[in-house]
Simulated assay, not measured.
Amino acid sequence: MPRNKEFDYDEKLVTARDLFWKKGYNATTMNDLVDTLAINRSSLYLAYGNKHELFIKSLGNYIQQKDKQYSHAAKKSKKPLEAIRHIILSVTVSAIKDTNCLFTNSVFELATTDTEVSSILRKQTLKAVDLFEQLLNQAKADGSLKSSKEPRALAHYLVSGLVSIYNTQILFNDAALTKQTAEILIGSINN
């Protein structure tokens, strides 16, 4: 008769996610995972699969968290440009508070070498681009977007700018500079 799991699956997944987040995929060993999750190796394999499978699940968990964050931030205003501003500011707060981003780390560490991770990251990036493009098209329709920039290209630019917010905070650990970076990104929308 199989033993019941003696741990909370989702709680341990978040713990693994945070470890990958702090150390990166390549620097995280199975021993690190066993020690940090405080479960035995066989339970880890049975519950989550190998290191790569656990990383994919962890990345999926992180992406779900970011989707909720963006959605919550966007809903703070019915005005589309204000919704974009709220999303960018929520990313700024996360960057300052967390000083890291599993998504950004994964882009730079794995996107060129791991096709599965690259596919997940690309899909998520396009989802964010679609959200920004939708808001920009609404702003164009209501007259609040004065820029002649193509909304899809501007949406791509804004999403790449989110990465620059994390980059600034990770490299310089300077909240004032990170907030300035975000404000410049916001200001670029109608320029």
Rank of each mutant, 00 (worst) to 15 (best):
N40F: 08
D142F: 07
G60V: 04
V129L: 05
L145F: 04
P80A: 02
F20Y: 10
K76D: 10
A73V: 10
I88V: 15
R17E: 15
F132P: 00
K5R: 12
P80C: 00
N191C: 05
T112F: 05
I63T: 07
L46C: 01
A155W: 03
D35C: 04
R41S: 15
F132R: 10
V159M: 13
Q169G: 01
S106I: 14
K127D: 10
K75A: 15
H156G: 03
I88S: 06
S119T: 12
L171H: 07
S71M: 07
A73E: 05
S188E: 13
L135H: 04
K12M: 12
S119K: 03
K179A: 04
L54T: 12
R152S: 06
N4E: 13
E53P: 06
Y62C: 10
L13P: 15
L102D: 00
Q64F: 13
M30A: 01
L171Y: 01
S119Q: 03
E53F: 04
I165L: 03
R3M: 11
S160C: 10
L185F: 11
I184T: 14
T15K: 04
V163A: 10
V14P: 06
L145G: 01
A95D: 01
I63W: 02
K179V: 13
K23F: 11
A153C: 00
A16S: 13
F55G: 03
L110N: 08
W21H: 14
E11S: 11
T28M: 14
S42M: 11
G24H: 01
Y45M: 11
W21C: 09
L136D: 08
P151M: 03
D18K: 12
K140A: 12
K68M: 11
N61F: 08
